[in-house]
Simulated scan of single mutants.
Amino acid sequence: MPYITTSDGTEIYYTEQGSGQPIIFSHGWPLNSDAWALELKLFADAGYRAIAHDRRGHGRSSKTYQGNDLDHYAKDLSDLIEALDLHDVIVVGHSTGGGEVIRYVAQHGAGRVAKAVTVGAIPPLMLKTEANPGGAPIEVFDALRAGVLGDRSQFFKDLAVPFFGGNREGSKASQGLYDEFWREGMEMNVAAAYDCIEAFSNTDQTADLKAIEVPVLLLHGDDDQIVPIDAASRTAVTLLKNGTLKVYPGAPHGIFGENQKQIDQDILDFIAD
């Protein structure tokens, strides 16, 4: 299996298919690069060099105790891109992966990134504060931490349902989707799972968004129960110099089914312009 070793000695697993302009996919919590398996083939078939990696602490990458934060995630992505000597890169991030991508582009991506895409992404800030009254209260994230430290297996099974909108009337989320979410979640070590909650909830990326010069496409479902759209993408797009927001009515946080087909086509259209 292919790995690169980051500047602090962490081993990052990655997989790639195809050739052409590089496009890198960054996954959400608690998943890994397998979440992008369909996109790897689809974008390779469309003429791109499609790459996805497991964030540190997730999947097949090093089971890290330290460095489970957005600064390290973005630096790891930078190390991967430099190790593969990629240029004119398109970066795509879902959920926490969207935060990773935004920090990477703002702090490391100059001269390498052509465009960026986020899907149901966390920026600018998920936590409710005096300056961010539309965010989620700390109790929401404390409950996630308790789940990771408690019956973690059942916690991930339960979390999969709202993640994919399975608690909504007419949902087409399958047991297979839930099982795959559970499998990927259980491959993450507990320290990384726990620390990443702090990373995605309490990292203010306002400055990152304001610093980005390249075009950014923000895609978000308006029934996202994990990263509610108002405090996330609807706010983020107002901070970007060159941002475009597309909202999917009734779509959940998880990417699957007809919504996934539309998201993939929207990304293809955006990067082809």
Results as ranks from 00 to 15, higher is better:
M1F: 11
P2C: 12
I4L: 03
T6C: 03
T10L: 07
E11R: 14
I12W: 01
Q17V: 04
G18T: 06
Q21N: 11
I23R: 01
S26V: 09
S26L: 06
G28C: 12
G28N: 02
W29V: 12
P30W: 05
P30C: 08
N32H: 11
A37Y: 04
E39T: 08
K41E: 14
A44E: 15
A46C: 12
G47D: 13
Y48A: 11
A50V: 05
I51G: 00
A52R: 01
A52I: 07
H53F: 14
R55T: 10
G57C: 08
H58S: 12
R60F: 12
T64P: 04
G67D: 01
L70K: 05
H72C: 02
L77R: 00
S78T: 07
H87Q: 14
D88L: 08
V89P: 00
V89A: 05
S95A: 13
T96A: 10
G98P: 02
V101N: 04
V101T: 06
A106D: 00
H108M: 03
H108C: 08
A116W: 01
V117W: 02
V119I: 15
A121S: 12
A121G: 10
I122Y: 01
P123A: 13
K128N: 07
G134P: 01
G135P: 04
I138W: 10
E139N: 11
V140E: 10
G150A: 12
G150R: 05
S153L: 14
Q154E: 15
F155D: 02
F156L: 15
K157I: 07
L159A: 12
L159H: 03
A160H: 06
V161R: 03
P162C: 06
P162H: 08
G165H: 01
G166K: 08
G170W: 04
K172I: 12
A173V: 13
Q175I: 13
E184K: 06
G185D: 05
E187L: 14
N189K: 02
N189I: 05
A193E: 00
A193N: 09
D195E: 14
C196H: 02
S201Y: 03
S201Q: 02
N202Q: 15
T203Q: 10
D204F: 07
Q205V: 09
A207K: 14
D208G: 06
D208K: 02
L209D: 02
E213L: 11
V216Y: 00
L217W: 04
L218P: 04
L218Y: 03
L219V: 08
D222S: 01
I226H: 04
I226P: 00
V227S: 04
P228A: 13
I229N: 06
D230P: 03
S233L: 01
V237R: 04
V237D: 01
T238P: 08
K241C: 10
N242L: 07
N242S: 12
G243A: 13
K246G: 02
P249H: 11
G250V: 11
G250R: 09
G250E: 09
G254M: 09
G254W: 00
G254K: 07
I255S: 00
I255A: 04
G257W: 05
E258M: 09
Q260R: 15
K261T: 14
Q262M: 13
D264N: 15
L268T: 10
I271H: 06
I271E: 03
D273Y: 05
D273C: 12
